[in-house]
């Protein structure tokens, strides 16, 4: 089987953001690495690797981003992906989800012969979770979103059965390959990169595909994201409820909550 996993490099979950006049955003992480593999994508990477471990074949990690997002691909390689490809071009900067989907779909087509393309549930920078379906539309493949288990896959017959985690339960669906899948956290427990894996990843030369390589001029984005601003501060200051007994504390707190009209 040939599987692709699309992974994005995002700010870390503990990153601290600064917005400059004009709306440009920068971030740093005083306690760690400012950029990481999008946490939701770790599950997608793990599932891609597991599938090739079971079925044989190759898992190719794919990122659209700047040169620096090679780091995300190195993590994917260290975990066990067989190949990695960076798609990078100034022409793709500021791509919206449809623009991103066009570029990723073109790259998946160029990889060729792909049975399953894995995605994370959402990227934690934009938190949109729409790229998966849009890639599927560009490719004309079936999207299977919010997948919590691959129950069966038969590459020879070209069929797959998955469970999808919806608000009110799990929907069990069968589809024909090729498919585009987004996974949720329930699907697996991502492995840590092995020592050997890290060494291999550090030596790997990751090819870069440009707009010209994909036969595209631009991402064709339509959404303007430039106006970013800091949150209005939460004006509340905590009121500590103190009293001689927990019963008294409970009484005071319940009074406050009735006054707040939230009960």
């Amino acid at each position: 089987m040939k599987v692709v996993v699309c992974t994005k490099q995002t700010p870390s979950t503990t990153a601290v953001f600064t917005v400059r006049a004009g709306g440009s955003v920068s971030w740093d992480d005083p306690g760690g690495k400012p950029n990481v593999v999008n946490p939701w994508d770790e599950y997608a990477i793990e599932e891609a690797i597991r599938l090739t471990e079971k079925q044989g074949g190759t898992a190719v990690a794919l990122t659209l981003g700047t040169e620096a997002s090679q780091e995300a691909l190195k993590t994917a390689l260290a975990m066990g992906c067989h190949e990695a490809i960076l798609v990078s071009d100034g022409a793709f900067e500021g791509a919206d989800s449809l623009g991103t989907a066009r570029v990723l779909a073109a790259a998946i087509r160029k990889v060729g012969g792909v049975d399953v393309a894995f995605f994370g549930k959402q990227a934690i920078d934009g938190d949109t979770g729409q790229t998966t379906v849009q890639v599927a539309r560009q490719l004309g493949w079936t999207p299977l979103t919010f997948v919590s288990a691959i129950q069966a896959i038969d590459p020879a017959a070209g069929t797959i059965t998955v469970a999808r985690l919806l608000e009110e339960g799990k929907q069990i669906v069968t589809a024909r390959l090729p498919v585009v899948i987004s996974v949720v956290k329930e699907i697996n427990e991502p492995r840590y990169p092995s020592f050997m894996g890290i060494r291999k990843a550090n030596r790997a030369v990751i090819p870069t595909w440009t707009a010209a390589d994909l036969g595209l001029n631009s991402s064709g984005s339509k959404v303007d994201w430039s106006n970013v601003f800091a949150l209005p501060a939460r004006e509340s200051k905590v009121e500590m409820i103190e009293a001689d007994s927990v019963e008294e504390q409970a009484r005071i707190l319940v009074d406050r909550l009735f006054e707040e009209k939230v009960i």
Binding site: D96, L98, G129, T131, R137, T145, L166, K222, V223
Partner: peptide, 21 residues
């Protein structure tokens, strides 16, 4: 989950801008 998928599909087919959440 359903609204997200549906809007993503419609926007892709209509070549329309899409903003979630």
């Amino acid at each position: 989950t359903r609204g997200r998928d549906l809007m993503a599909w419609a926007a892709a087919d209509l070549d329309a801008g899409l903003v979630s959440d």
